[in-house]
Design a binder for these strands. Structure first.
Lengths: 201, 201
DNA sequence: AAATAAAATTGACAGTGTCAATATAGAGAC
DNA sequence: GTCTCTATATTGACACTGTCAATTTTATTT
């Protein structure tokens, strides 16, 4: 008898889907224990496997981190999409809402946000292609939301790249510098107060 | 006989000035080997002492890192001061020069810059008071340069805090996002192109 | 010169990432 | 159904890390 339509994407061998489980474990450790709690061995333990099991799915800790960064960008994009959908359609209102989503994500997921936008970029030598591709794709998705919201505007000579770059720099710097509880000593202006008046196209 | 005028700030015991040497070693390791090369044991080895010697000067690795952040802010301030002194006195020219110094520092000292502006703030519980104070003071010094350059301008209702916050966010985000060689694929606008036109007071 | 405090050393311990060797489960071929 | 073979997971080891306790060395003070 032909066992037709047998699952081609069958759950692998022992665990089921360890790669996914390790990413989720990493996210959880990051949220609860901070950056230094993100450990290959802790992820493995949280997923219920031995300490060396992750090696079958990630070429070392860095590859897992890159996969987590990718996952973070998906959550990031979702936060901005949600903010956009709850705001009115006026271009400036939309842009502000998305930026506030940006900032809220940074505030809510400090450690993940920091990992995602690490400045001294992770050396991608030796990182899994899967993780790298996921990160690139998810990064483009999240950036695309901001980019789209900049399209109605014009800034410095009609080059839309100028607007994108200005807005992205502004919101990213604001999120980095002020989306921390520690900075609450000073009365920081809201983002809408520092966003320059952008003329519509 | 009175041994008057004996050095009150005498060089301590064995090493001479191990605290300073450890900070310098940390800076060097950071520049040459990246973030993960900054290790208590490597610093100790580079300073020529045993692996546990740093404990006499820093309450753990985090305290050393905070001291290194402080030192970084001094270099940061120096870079911006130099940029300022080499530019003409026109307010906007001054501001742009200082911001370009900001960006140049980020580009030149990627890992140090990242450490200095780590988003998920280092837990300062248990950090040496000396390191904490150094960092606060040096941070105020570097920020003061930018702040001063914002004074001639007015933005959104005469509140100078708005101008500072806008400019700082903008330059910091720009430095974070684009002061990396990896981002050179796209043609990024220069900073002066994205700095909005700020009316003078 | 003796006593005291500061600084550095040594040794140990629990974690960490990573590698090699081994065991095991599932997939496909017959 | 059985047999291979590959993917996956385990175990054990290694070097390296931060940190602690005990000890020794050095400098200052009395």
């Amino acid at each position: 008898m032909l066992t037709m339509t047998k699952k081609t994407t069958s759950t692998p061998h022992h665990h089921g889907n360890l790669r996914e489980a390790l990413i989720n474990a990493g996210l959880e450790l990051l949220e609860t224990g901070g950056a230094q709690a993100l450990t290959l061995r802790k992820c493995a333990a949280l997923a219920g496997v031995s300490h060396a099991a992750p090696a079958n799915h990630f070429n070392g800790l860095v590859s897992l981190k890159v996969a987590i960064m990718a996952r973070g960008h998906l959550l990031f994009a979702e936060t901005m999409r949600q903010a956009s959908s709850q705001a009115e359609s006026c271009p400036r209102t939309q842009l502000i809402a998305i930026c506030e989503g940006y900032i809220r994500f940074a505030r809510t997921h400090k450690t993940l946000f920091n990992l995602m936008f690490q400045f001294d970029c992770i050396d991608l030598e030796g990182v899994d292609d899967a993780s790298k591709n996921e990160k690139r794709k998810a990064g483009e998705e999240s950036y695309g939301i901001l980019k789209k919201a900049c399209l109605p505007f014009e800034h410095n000579g009609g080059n839309s790249l100028n607007t994108e770059t200005m807005v992205w720099s502004l919101v990213h710097g604001y999120a980095m510098l002020f989306a921390n509880e520690g900075a609450s000593k000073r009365a920081i202006p809201s983002f809408s107060e520092i966003l320059p008046n952008l003329p519509l196209k």
